[in-house]
């Protein structure tokens, strides 16, 4: 089963290497990983999608916790959350095909971000299913290049993954 983990880390050099190294040496599989700053410039947030049974993911969770730079780990798989990925696709677009592509762009609420003589570059955000569907529908025209971010996720409602009464939050003095 796939799990979505939200990992708050201190924005220190090498923290990505520590997390990535942990996954590779313990044999955990990362499906996707996205990382960026948060509302607090000292803290970065990673969203990691990991494949594995409950025992494996529990180990992932505990091993991540052991890293000193990791402030908090939450497995939000079972919570209500919004998730998004972004994809940019450079698709072959002969004049005859452009209308049809633009129709698909409309349907998926995607956007054309660059127009070339033989290609269109389109971007779309959405959850994984939507992005997969969009990619599939453009395949018939021929995809020249595709780039996709990892998933980012946020809990619905008032709850956050970044702050709660977790014991790892308090400052050691």
């Amino acid at each position: 089963m796939r799990h979505t983990l939200t990992v708050m880390v201190e924005n220190n050099p090498g923290v990505l290497a520590r997390v990535a190294g942990l996954f590779s040496r313990r044999g955990f599989n990362i499906d996707s990983l996205a990382v960026g700053r948060t509302e607090n410039p000292l803290v970065s947030r990673m969203t990691i999608v990991v494949e594995g049974d409950d025992t494996t993911v529990e180990q992932v969770n505990k091993q991540l916790h052991k890293l000193v730079d990791v402030i908090k780990v939450s497995d939000i798989t079972k919570d209500a959350y919004v998730d998004r990925e972004l994809v940019m696709i450079k698709v072959y677009a002969e004049p005859s095909a452009r209308a049809e592509i633009m129709q698909l762009v409309d349907i998926f609420r995607a956007r054309i971000v660059d127009v070339g003589p033989k290609t269109l570059t389109v971007e779309v955000t959405g959850n994984e299913g939507k992005i997969d569907a969009f990619e599939l529908s453009l395949r018939t025209f021929g995809i020249k290049e595709l780039v996709r971010t990892g998933k980012i996720a946020m809990l619905r409602g008032f709850k956050t993954s970044s702050k709660n009464n977790n014991h790892k939050e308090e400052e050691v003095s």
């Binding site: 880390v9 201190e10 890293l67 000193v68 730079d69 990791v70 402030i71 908090k72 014991h167 790892k168 939050e169 308090e170 400052e171 050691v172 003095s173």
Partner: peptide
């Protein structure tokens, strides 16, 4: 005199 280790608090 202080440490800044928000991610480190052994039980």
């Amino acid at each position: 005199d202080r440490m800044n280790l928000p991610g480190y608090r052994p039980v």
